[in-house]
Design a protein around this nucleic acid. Structure first.
Length: 426
RNA sequence: GUGCCUAUGGUGUAAUGGUUAGCACUCGGCUCUGUGAAAGCCGCAGCAUGGGUUCGAAUCCCAUUAGGCACCCCA
């Protein structure tokens, strides 16, 4: 320590947020949407520690890159520990651990905070909260339809209309068929081209074409035609005849039809939608905001049938998605759908004279027993100041307690909006 | 990790290289010691840090630090 002590900064650590009451109100609102939707569909809540052994994430990707984007450290017992960057591996670990005891289908949700070590920028921070919804043990497309329907409900609850967003769908199975069977690529090439497809809308057309050429050669024009198909029908006709009965095509068709039966019609097949994770095996989807100010995915997920094999278990089929709080908040801001801050109490007791505080506390306690939220102003300021303080906090009613009230035992509530006074009974 | 931009009271902002660094909100006090939403008055509090140019720097230059945005990467 130097002799000129440096003041501590009041800033939060880079990339993480403080939640002041006004922010917490928004966060609560988002969590409530997530929770009520999950519960409405019969999902059970689970949770886990933010700490996981680093191996859990290494096993999944087999790449060192993951390490550079996680918070990892060595504990005192020489174990390598990571702050979870996503919830799915933890979930897979938990389900695998109790696979024999659990009754499938399993419907689980959680709202974990997740960490990643990255440069913060708009929509991306180092700690965020994410709803994770997963259904295990349902092989049929009913699982996809249910989960996408939840995603739809959540997006509507954010305050968006059907015309504000669309649900983009694709099938990993279909795309694998395209790369492996239609274009005869090996696994490695398929993987590379998949990553490329994912980038299509972000890079220049000629750059994309050149990159595709390196892998596909003469087939590139055919490939580009396919990727540029305007809709599902056109995409289908650009495929060989034999593709018609391929499962990848029919599953896209069925999910779209299934959602339509539920009244969800703003779906769109998108052959360029891949999603980052390698573990997806079937349908993948994203809710995409069409507002020109945003134009980005607000949530996404898909089917991953093989993840539990990491733990040596036999297959358990799974479909799930994740939705982040940062995008939800940004979305509500652009759509002007942020909730009004709730008041902290129904009634404030203003106390005139310090000696009357014990009496006021007693009154407050009795009213609380009836289920009202009540706070006592302990400031001993002038009455006018106390009232104006209650008003500023959005507390709708006050009770004044001073010598007069204590001696008569008669209390009145006053409505700060209307000015009306009412005798308090009991 | 790379590039671009930014940095003035707690917050939001103003100031042709020369002002006592201005304004609004917030906060504290008063007009007004048992009834608030108004108005007015008073007060607290600031040029991110370190160098340089200059008679003179909030202002120009450099570095550092911090933040934002974009790239990279992508839960």
């Amino acid at each position: 320590m130097s002799d000129t002590p440096k003041k501590l900064s009041t800033d939060a650590y880079k990339g993480v947020r403080d939640f002041f009451p006004v922010d917490m109100a928004v966060q609560r609102h988002i969590f409530n949407i997530w929770e009520t939707t999950s519960k409405k569909y019969g999902y059970e809540e689970y949770g886990a520690s933010v700490l996981e052994p680093a191996d859990l994430y290494r096993a999944k990707t087999g790449e060192e890159i993951i390490n550079e984007q996680t918070y990892s450290f060595i504990d005192r017992g020489d174990r390598e520990v990571t702050l979870r960057p996503e919830m799915t591996p933890t979930l897979a670990r938990m389900v695998a651990a109790r696979k024999r005891e659990l009754t499938f289908p399993l419907r689980w949700y959680s709202i974990p905070n997740l960490f990643r070590y990255e440069q913060p920028q708009r929509g991306r921070v180092r700690e965020h909260w994410q709803l994770n919804v997963d259904i295990f043990g349902v092989e049929s497309l009913a699982a996809e339809i249910e989960v996408i329907s939840m995603a739809y409900d959540i997006t509507r609850a954010y305050g968006l209309k059907d015309t504000d967003f669309e649900i983009r769908l694709n099938s990993r199975r279909l795309m694998h068929y395209v790369t492996a069977d239609v274009f005869n690529l090996d696994e490695h090439q398929s993987h590379t081209i998949s990553k490329l497809i994912d980038k299509k809308d972000k890079v220049k057309a000629d750059w994309f074409e050149a990159a595709a050429m390196e892998i596909l050669g003469d087939n590139t024009p055919k490939f580009l035609t396919l990727l540029n198909s305007k809709n599902f029908e056109e995409f289908t006709t650009n495929l060989p005849q034999t593709a018609e009965e391929h499962k990848g095509l029919s599953e896209v068709r069925q999910v779209i039809a299934g959602l339509e039966k539920l009244g969800i019609t703003n779906t769109r097949f998108d052959q360029t939608l891949m999603r980052g994770f390698d573990y997806y095996t079937g349908i993948v989807f994203e809710v995409f905001d069409l507002n020109p100010a945003n134009r980005r995915a607000v949530l996404g997920g898909g089917r991953y049938d093989d993840l539990l094999s990491l733990f040596g278990n036999e297959k358990v089929t799974a479909v799930g998605f994740g939705a982040g709080d940062v995008t939800a908040r940004d979305l509500m801001e652009t759509y002007n759908a942020l909730p009004a801050a709730p008041s902290s109490a129904d009634i404030m007791i203003c106390v005139v004279g310090e000696h009357n505080i014990p009496y006021a506390l007693d009154v407050a306690q009795k009213i609380r027993e009836k289920g009202q939220r009540i706070a006592v102003d302990l400031s001993i300021k002038k009455l006018g100041d106390q009232i104006s303080h209650a008003n500023k906090r959005g507390i709708p009613k006050i009770i004044v307690i001073g010598d007069e009230e204590v001696s008569t035992g008669k209390l009145k509530t006053k409505d700060l909006k209307t000015g009306e006074e009412q005798e308090l009974i009991g």
